[in-house]
Simulated assay, not measured.
Amino acid sequence: MDSARSDRCTIRVESAPYDTITHATREALNRSMTERGWINASRPDSPAYDSALLVATELVVNACRHADGPEEVRLIWEGTDLTIEVDDTAPGRPCPRAVAERGETGGFGMAIIADLSEDWGVRVAPEGRGKTVYARLACREGRATVAA
Rank of each mutant, 00 (worst) to 15 (best):
residue 55 V to A: 10
residue 72 E to K: 12
residue 77 W to R: 13
residue 51 S to K: 04
residue 106 G to F: 07
residue 131 K to R: 15
residue 23 H to F: 11
residue 103 G to T: 08
residue 141 E to D: 15
residue 77 W to D: 00
residue 110 M to S: 09
residue 30 N to I: 00
residue 63 A to N: 09
residue 71 E to K: 08
residue 81 D to P: 02
residue 100 A to W: 00
residue 4 A to T: 11
residue 148 A to K: 10
residue 50 D to K: 05
residue 33 M to E: 00
residue 78 E to C: 05
residue 47 P to A: 03
residue 51 S to V: 10
residue 122 V to R: 10
residue 60 V to S: 05
residue 54 L to V: 06
residue 69 G to K: 13
residue 115 D to C: 11
residue 66 H to T: 14
residue 108 F to N: 08
residue 62 N to Y: 01
residue 91 P to F: 08
residue 25 T to H: 03
residue 46 S to M: 07
residue 16 A to Y: 13
residue 17 P to K: 12
residue 125 A to R: 11
residue 38 W to R: 10
residue 96 P to E: 14
residue 105 T to H: 12
residue 16 A to D: 14
residue 130 G to L: 03
residue 49 Y to C: 01
residue 26 R to W: 04
residue 98 A to H: 10
residue 22 T to R: 10
residue 126 P to D: 15
residue 64 C to H: 15
residue 8 R to I: 06
residue 52 A to F: 01
residue 15 S to E: 13
residue 36 R to T: 02
residue 17 P to D: 13
residue 74 R to T: 11
residue 6 S to D: 07
residue 122 V to A: 15
residue 99 V to R: 09
residue 19 D to T: 06
residue 72 E to I: 00
residue 95 C to F: 12
residue 116 L to R: 06
residue 93 R to Q: 15
residue 4 A to P: 01
residue 136 R to K: 02
residue 21 I to R: 14
residue 136 R to E: 03
residue 50 D to N: 06
residue 113 I to Y: 04
residue 77 W to E: 12
residue 127 E to P: 02
residue 133 V to L: 03
residue 41 A to T: 01
residue 6 S to I: 06
residue 103 G to Q: 08
residue 110 M to N: 10
residue 78 E to V: 02
residue 67 A to P: 04
residue 38 W to Q: 13
residue 130 G to H: 03
residue 105 T to R: 13
residue 108 F to M: 09
residue 51 S to G: 09
residue 122 V to P: 13
residue 2 D to Y: 00
residue 90 A to W: 06
residue 51 S to M: 11
residue 96 P to D: 08
